[in-house]
Amino acid sequence: QPTDHLQRPLKLRFTFQQDNDPKHTAKITKEWLHNNSVTVLEWPSQSPDLNPIEHLCRDLKMAVHQRLPSNLTELERICKEEWQRIPRSRCEKLVASFLRRLMAVLAQKGASTKY
């Protein structure tokens, strides 16, 4: 494929992070990640959540809830619409705040933070 050379370097430059939710640690999930050569960050159980995507998921959940979808088709459409509405600046702010959130976690020795 013409774009194959563009996709390969991404596998080398990125590490996948997930929490230890049972669906993420299921045998079938681990096998899929391994078979697809996905590098996964080791993440301790019940670690404070430092993953910016969790904040975006919360934003999405709140926006979708306000629109009151009445069926699965509507839910899917609304999710896609609301995901597209999340400003790039929100993503940039979450990524930029990582060091500050990490320092707060370290200061709390892994306990809860305001984040």
Rank of each mutant, 00 (worst) to 15 (best):
L50P: 03
E81W: 01
S45C: 13
K109R: 14
L99A: 10
W43K: 04
S47E: 01
R101A: 06
L75F: 09
S70M: 12
R13F: 05
I78S: 01
K93I: 06
L41G: 05
V64W: 02
P22K: 04
V40I: 08
G110T: 08
G110K: 02
D59L: 14
E76W: 09
A63K: 12
L72M: 12
R58V: 11
L75C: 02
K80C: 11
R90D: 08
V105K: 09
N71Q: 05
S89V: 13
P52N: 00
K27R: 15
R101T: 03
A104G: 00
N35E: 13
I53D: 03
C79K: 09
L56I: 15
Q66T: 04
R8N: 13
Q17W: 11
T39V: 13
S112E: 10
T39A: 14
R13D: 04
Q46T: 11
S70D: 14
P52S: 04
L56R: 00
T25L: 02
H65N: 09
R77W: 07
Q84I: 00
W83M: 14
Q84D: 12
S47L: 08
D19G: 01
L50V: 00
H65K: 15
E74V: 00
P9V: 01
Q17G: 01
T73Q: 13
L6T: 02
A104R: 03
E82N: 01
A63Y: 07
D49F: 06
N71W: 12
S70Y: 11
T15L: 09
Q108C: 11
N71P: 08
Q108V: 02
N35F: 10
E31G: 07
T39K: 15
E42L: 13
R100P: 03
Q46I: 02
L41Y: 07
N20L: 02
R88T: 15
S97G: 02
Q7N: 10
H55R: 12
G110Y: 05
L12W: 07
